[in-house]
Design a binder for these strands. Structure first.
Lengths: 216, 216
DNA sequence: AAACCAGTTAATCTACGGTTAAGCTTTGGA
DNA sequence: TCCAAAGCTTAACCGTAGATTAACTGGTTT
């Protein structure tokens, strides 16, 4: 397993590198964003660990360029504070997972393991419903008519419903758990459900007044 | 409400403790798994918050030992992995809920509330009657012909009758306890019973004049 | 700076489902 | 076997949860 660690704090970087190598990973180190990007594009890595607040090039910029070049390498972002408004913003950038500093090394290992497993396809990767099929790894959704393109929020909502299929999920739970929005206000969920139904068909998601939404 | 917080990160632990105490909980703190387990087994707690990645004893081990000793205290796991595979594992280990770091305090509060409520209530599972089967967790009802869709009020009525099966329940009791309507007026219950009978079959709910309704 | 995209908000519309009402049927005591 | 009271059935009513549509906003792209 070949990892790329992009981290400007030399001390932390070398410490992490050694620890990861102790776990059997091969680790390349880049002390700034530009070099990191060059490396990421010129070599094949299984995973990139990216400090999100690099002085030279921040994580957002890094990710944008990386994805523009067509790279699909999974990325775990290292952030300082969870100042991200909600999950949508974050995952929209193409991050697979994130961890907040300071963290325990075990936590990082667990996340690396989870992401790698996800990408290796060891995890259950697909869910087949009556009329739709969902690729959980690639985050793609297919109907009888072919693939449909969902926005981030639409996808998160659908995924949550599918992973909890069989039971009714309340609007509040969807807002909080699926979208990560804790100041539940407004009818966002209703609008997103409506859009999902338009794309997937009317009968994939059912409503029960007072209980919430259910798939299947 | 007495909580046990098992968390080795001293900073996070004390912060959480204070926040929880601010919410009116009594909180005991254990900074490692062994001490946590001792406490859990020697005192009565309403709920345990367990960091799943303790250095000394991990969550799995903790839970195994806890349950081996016969404790039925509900446990909320604090974890960093967020994949579904583990969700199943967790619940198999006897975890009631879990929350992934980093989390908002409000979310933790919500989950604590949910678990406590669940435990305060009647134990729920599945009830099999002669002709119908009821999944109390998912609020779903099946007859020989397949699933029937009940409205909220219909379901509440049926659930109450089933949980009190064998005895006659008066119209007033149903209205007040099952539906929560304390200004008993009109014949709502009769209409709902009628609709239930139409959906479930005539012989599931029987009437005794002057006494009320009964499910066997 | 104009156009675009995606999530949220706001305003309006719809219909679900609990309630009411009115007439019908069954029960069981005299 | 009568007949009131209790319960059943049906249809209509209507408030509100949810659906729908369009406009808004902040960020990003051209």
């Amino acid at each position: 397993m070949k990892l790329l660690l992009v981290e400007d704090d030399r001390e932390l970087a070398t410490a992490l590198k050694e620890l990861l190598e102790g776990e059997g990973f091969r680790v390349r180190l880049a002390l700034d964003g530009k070099r990191g990007l060059d490396l990421a594009l010129s070599e094949d890595f299984d995973l990139i660990l990216l400090d999100y607040f690099l002085p030279s090039m921040n994580g957002r910029e890094f990710l944008k360029r990386l994805r523009e070049e067509g790279s699909k390498v999974p990325v775990i972002a290292i952030t300082v504070v969870s100042d991200v408004k909600n999950k949508v913003d974050f995952f929209q950038m193409g991050v697979d997972d994130y961890i907040t500093k300071p963290f325990h090394f075990e936590e990082l290992l667990a996340r690396i393991g989870a992401v790698l497993r996800r990408y290796a396809g060891i995890e259950k990767a697909e869910v087949d419903l009556e009329t739709i099929r969902i690729d959980l790894n690639r985050k793609r959704v297919f109907t009888e008519k072919g693939e449909v393109s969902l926005t981030s929020a639409e996808y998160l909502l659908l995924e949550y419903l599918v992973l909890n299929r069989g039971r009714f999920v309340s609007r509040e739970e969807l807002l909080e758990r699926a979208l990560g929005n804790y100041e539940a206000e407004g009818n966002t969920v209703e609008v997103l459900i409506h859009r999902l139904r338009r794309k997937l068909g009317r009968d994939v998601i059912m409503t029960k007044k007072g209980l919430g939404y259910r798939v299947m």
